[in-house]
Design a protein around this nucleic acid. Sequence first.
DNA 1: AATACATGCACAAACGTTTGTGCATGTATT
DNA 2: AATACATGCACAAACGTTTGTGCATGTATT
Lengths: 338, 338
Amino acid sequence: MTAQKVNINDIAKKAGLSITTVSRVLNGKAEQYRIGKKSQEKIKNAARELNYVPNQFAANLRSGRSNTIALIVPSLNNPFFAGIASKINAEIRKYGYITIIGDSDENQEIEKMELLQLMSRNIEGLIIVPCGDQWEHIKQLYDNGLPVICIDRYFENLDIPFVSTDNYDGAYSATKLLIEHGHNKIACIQGVQKSTPNRLRIKGFRDAMNEAGLSDFSITGDDFSIQNGYLETKLLLQQKNRPTAIFSLSNTIAMGCMKAFKEENISIPEDISLITFDDHPYLDYLATPLSCIAQPINDISKIAVKFLFSRLENQEISTKQVLLKPKIKYKESIKRIT
Amino acid sequence: MTAQKVNINDIAKKAGLSITTVSRVLNGKAEQYRIGKKSQEKIKNAARELNYVPNQFAANLRSGRSNTIALIVPSLNNPFFAGIASKINAEIRKYGYITIIGDSDENQEIEKMELLQLMSRNIEGLIIVPCGDQWEHIKQLYDNGLPVICIDRYFENLDIPFVSTDNYDGAYSATKLLIEHGHNKIACIQGVQKSTPNRLRIKGFRDAMNEAGLSDFSITGDDFSIQNGYLETKLLLQQKNRPTAIFSLSNTIAMGCMKAFKEENISIPEDISLITFDDHPYLDYLATPLSCIAQPINDISKIAVKFLFSRLENQEISTKQVLLKPKIKYKESIKRIT
DNA sequence: AATACATGCACAAACGTTTGTGCATGTATT
DNA sequence: AATACATGCACAAACGTTTGTGCATGTATT
């Protein structure tokens, strides 16, 4: 069926040279091994005429290099991670590498399985948004010398490098913003509790509330999903003593909040104020444009990739753990109350 | 640095058997080659204890199979394609295969380059949303026996299989919906003109208008992007004789429309009606929930993957070109005018 | 006791590259 | 004319698997 694939041997024959020479020319090592100009031409022409496509498997098997980086995210369906995947995919391609994207579906067992599969593809590096609080399987790879970098979520007390948003700062500032607008009864709807970003956001939220001497707040929820935001909001709205503002820890959660608001005929910001983590173009066109804590997705992606390739090129890296400041975008979704 | 990798040889030694036997047991061919139960146990135990991870490159080099499917989309940043990528990635993994996702950035040259790179990784199948009207490079792979299926966008007069939305039907119905609401002056903002879905949508739009005896319509634009939607809407709004409704051919374009509306203080549906191709959860929470033509993303993804693996298993496929009916979701964004 | 078949494995080549090394031949230097 | 170095390549092994084949030994059949 498939047309016979052209290999290095066919080129060697056509050019009247050895496969050694062919390999060196095609890999740009002609100068290094002093291959004559004419031979180089012959080989390049032959390769072109025969439509030669190198077999990476063979090359990788021999050289041990796979030119492959793995990226594992908890859910490609979340626009936040889709954005990251898109950016990282593009950045990695600039280095002539390929990205294999894995989706752990917020499930640690799947994460482990995917990692195994990826290892058997001899990945040269790993960018991961770990989906749980287990880190042994990742740490083991790291200790074995695989360049690894966590993004977004990470492990605080390990030496695995990471680059993420300064979640504490973002949550603290957002909460202060609400407080400054007169809110003293705030509900926070969180995502995956064990994840570091979630913990730090909660900490920022608590600290801001405590500093302001406010104790009338709640923290509920357990997933970065629309459903979770929807359910928790429904529950909140049934309370006698409703919060005046909700702090949502992800854009998916915020979407769930809005779904519940709509059903209950609650409008933002008249009836309730809302601010959320994560930015997205559509936020501006909502019934009420949503205030948000915009994470520097592009910078995170770029830094992660850059870090990885520095490691691959054996450059010493000084800073291994990076936190980037988020940007608060203030919009109409926060009401000033007296 | 990296701990010495365990290979099939180490297992053979530990188990006191040959690598042939090890390979057969680990590949589930023990019965076929009559390997004793005890030997099987020994090998499986050894593999487990040594933490064996097979080297896919070596396996693939020898067997010629890569267990890899390629997916190329025009832009992962477009939520429509991100959704497809997510779904396809998950589906393919069920078969034990890996997906390599490529992003052509709506650029045919990049598409060709990516395809070359992918071929050198011996992909066993290709799912592609072709980004332009050139098809030779894809047709060539198809003719060489590579299982290929186009999704969303495709080529009408080629025998390359495809699965897509019935774009004509969707556009026709949407336009009729507008007409039935009394609109007789409709502007259509299109995406990539050469793409088949765009052409068919335009055709559906035209036919519906013509059948209704309406000739006061416009078709502008050239990209499935926010910018394009924004610019074209700005231009439309400057006309003396404004359209009463806009038909947007993608969710990204619709977002651009809304941006322009906002700047010009135009509200939906009082000042202008809007309907768009593509569904998304956030559409419900917009200032005015947006009517849309929802494409069956999940079905498209599933069918494409299923088709590919049927081909890989050499099953004869009868229907090679599939169009799925879209679903019109009617919401408040369309005003009834007398 | 001879034959036939089943059982349980191992040999060795092969996939298509990369790479350390070495060997001619040519040219410059003394 | 002898020596030294540069130029331009080729040999052959190796990466870690898979796979067609064949060969002992055991067991059943006559």
